[in-house]
Amino acid sequence: MAILECRQLTKRYSSQPALDHIDLAVQPGGIVGLLGPNGSGKTTLLKLANGLLQPDSGEILIDGKKPSKETKSIVSYLPERTYFADWMRADQLLDLFQDFYADFDRQRAEEMLQHMNIQPKMRIKEMSKGMREKVQLILVMSRRAKLYLLDEPIGGVDPATRDYILHTIISNYDPEAAVIISTHLISDVENVLDDVVFLNYGHIALHKSVDELRAEEGKSVDAVFREVFRCS
């Protein structure tokens, strides 16, 4: 069974469709790149999967169920912004995740914090933007979730941090789980992707495995993306 499935999923903002009758099925056990230019509907799709938005028509299913309290316990979501209260310390955030998520691996999170030289007693307001993003990623990737939804995990960080983030993702996710990475920085992520979904103005322009795409087109995913989304 697909871990994430969209059936004729539609979401409009005012009269403008952000997602227009899309059908999509993501199977467990792989990393999927949700690729598209700004405003193509990537964030909307991830918000719908998390129940942060409601579809106008069609449906989105996580492990066969509509987004609910139950599906939230198996989805690990990294939004495009940091969501911490700035008075909290790193160890208090670990307490919070441990309280609410049965699949949270505290030991793994503590090891990653130590590896990043982040003191557990350090407050969020004392951290730089990059450090906050790393702490958030550590928390999200320290869960043994069935589905990871990562919205622009490498947007706005330096190349060294990008490498760290991608390494953290591929070395921490459960092989039985699915990871969906939304980004427009294709060249940085294409080596870790198993499948790609191109989103364009709320429509799926392409959904293929990376190997198949490279074999058929004889080009990198980045080169195909530039062709598909070329500005006229």
Binding site: L52, K69, E70, Y83
Partner: peptide, 18 residues
Amino acid sequence: HKNYMTDEGYLMFTLPVS
């Protein structure tokens, strides 16, 4: 307001609670 209506809402509304 702060916990539900701002960026903190991204955490609170994705916790497995009703």
